Computed example of a mutant assay.
Amino acid sequence: MTARPANAHQARLLALLRDAGPHSRAQLGDQVELSRSKLAVEVERLLDTGLVVADGLAASRGGRRSHNVRLSPGLRFLGVDIGATSIDVAVTNAELEILGHLTQVMEVREGPVAVFEQVLAMAAELRDAGLADGFDGAGIGVPGPVRFPEGVPVAPPIMPGWDGFPVREALSQELGCPVMVDNDVNLMAMGEQHAGVARTVADFLCVKIGTGIGCGIVVGGNVHRGTTGSAGDIGHIQAVPDGRPCACGNRGCLEAHFGGAALARDAEEAARQGRSPELAARLAAHGGLTAADVAAGAAAGDATCLDLIREGGTRTGQVIAGLVSFFNPGLVVIGGGVTGLGHTLLAAVRTQVYRQSLPLATGNLPIVLGELGPIAGVTGAARLISDHVFSPA
């Protein structure tokens, strides 16, 4: 098993090398508040652990040239993003660059045993491709609330059979490395924070619109999970009084009116009622419709598809407007499978938020699509486990 840093100074040095790449000792000294002698001691201790290695001579700053140090090129993290209808698995190096990435269609409803068999098979495929001898840690995202300290899903509405399943413990035994588990939206937020559109923002919201709808809340650079792990469960905020029944047992939830499943249902209804020749043709060809069909219809200029997206974007915008007035973020990121709906969706969300929230909160508020797309979750998962491995034992 990988050694862990012995103290907070070493943890800070590891995070710096992860986020900014190789540094000379002099550059490290510029960024951490340590005397030269204390810095030299901590770097030597990290070299002894094997977590960092010498990496050639640094550029001269006058006087004797120092060596660069970098994170060990042999470190490997596994990022796993389990969605409602798909699994993404990736291997990264210590700087969280993705070395290999696999995607597999699979329903989370098939239960934890079947899903984790698939995850382990995908991890083995990446390992056998020569990308890793083993893993130094794994981060796992699941589409429901997680009791974070134990790494256990709690009462997830769309995940029958998962309540209380010991995800962290089971996978740690199978993979032979530390494992951390979090909600998939929190990991998307961490991914965008590490390598995406939120790199320079300390307080932001990351809204994932997929089969369901959730929100990652980042405060002062850290994910806010709430007391029981259900912070940001905005799909179950009421958007339509006395509206449609929702999987959670209430009526009128945002998710019941605009998530991937609701959009597919509305699209099929429009096709059967003859309101959209484009959707009718797709339904006849495939026997069912998805959000991707609505996106394709909108791109082809189909008025019904555009209306469905605008209506959903307006409802989502109403909920986000309330969050913006309450939280006053510096950025709102929109991601997830439904972002194939792109700028039509974004325009509807923006219009509603800017109309409804106070000008003081929205005067300088960017509302943007995520940059990382399908790798946001696995990047965030690798970030989560690296934070753990690079923290003092």
Rank of each mutant, 00 (worst) to 15 (best):
C206W: 05
M180V: 15
A195V: 01
D293N: 15
A296H: 11
R25S: 04
G74L: 02
T85R: 12
A129N: 12
H343V: 11
M190I: 10
M190L: 15
R70P: 07
R45F: 09
L341Y: 00
D163S: 14
R45K: 14
L16Q: 06
M190C: 07
T339V: 04
G317K: 08
I217Q: 09
S60R: 05
R12Y: 13
A15D: 12
G377A: 13
V368R: 12
G287Q: 08
P241E: 14
R4K: 14
L13N: 05
L102D: 06
L13M: 13
I82W: 07
G229N: 07
V201D: 05
D55V: 05
R61M: 09
A270H: 02
L14I: 08
L51A: 04
L205G: 02
L78S: 02
V115T: 15
L47V: 07
F148T: 12
Q27I: 05
G260L: 02
P156V: 08
I209L: 10
V113A: 12
G79A: 03
A361G: 12
L358W: 14
C305K: 00
V89D: 01
I82M: 11
A382N: 03
P359E: 08
R272S: 06
T227M: 02
G29K: 14
S60N: 05
T228F: 08
I237R: 11
S325M: 06
G56V: 11
M122I: 14
V108I: 11
R61Q: 11
T316I: 10
G111V: 03
V338Y: 04
L120D: 03
T85D: 12
M188K: 09
R315K: 08
M159T: 11
G63Q: 10
E125G: 14
V389M: 04
G63L: 13
E110S: 15
T314C: 08
L14A: 04
R315Y: 01
N68T: 02
A382E: 02
M122E: 13
H257G: 01
P366W: 15
E278I: 09
L283S: 00
T92N: 00
A296F: 06
G232D: 04
L360P: 03
G330A: 11
P160G: 06
N186F: 09
G74V: 04
A291C: 08
V142S: 04
P392M: 08
V146G: 08
V80M: 11
D233V: 06
G79V: 01
V219C: 11
E169V: 10
N183D: 14
E95R: 10
A247E: 15
S230F: 04
F165R: 13
F204I: 10
G312V: 01
N183H: 15
I367M: 10
A124S: 15
T227P: 01
L346W: 05
E117I: 06
S357I: 02
A376F: 01
V333A: 10
G216N: 13
V185P: 03
R18E: 10
K208A: 11
A121D: 12
L75M: 10
G377I: 09
D30R: 15
D128F: 13
R272K: 14
T49R: 07
S276P: 01
H257T: 00
L289W: 00
S86A: 14
V152C: 09
A262K: 02
A3M: 10
A270T: 03
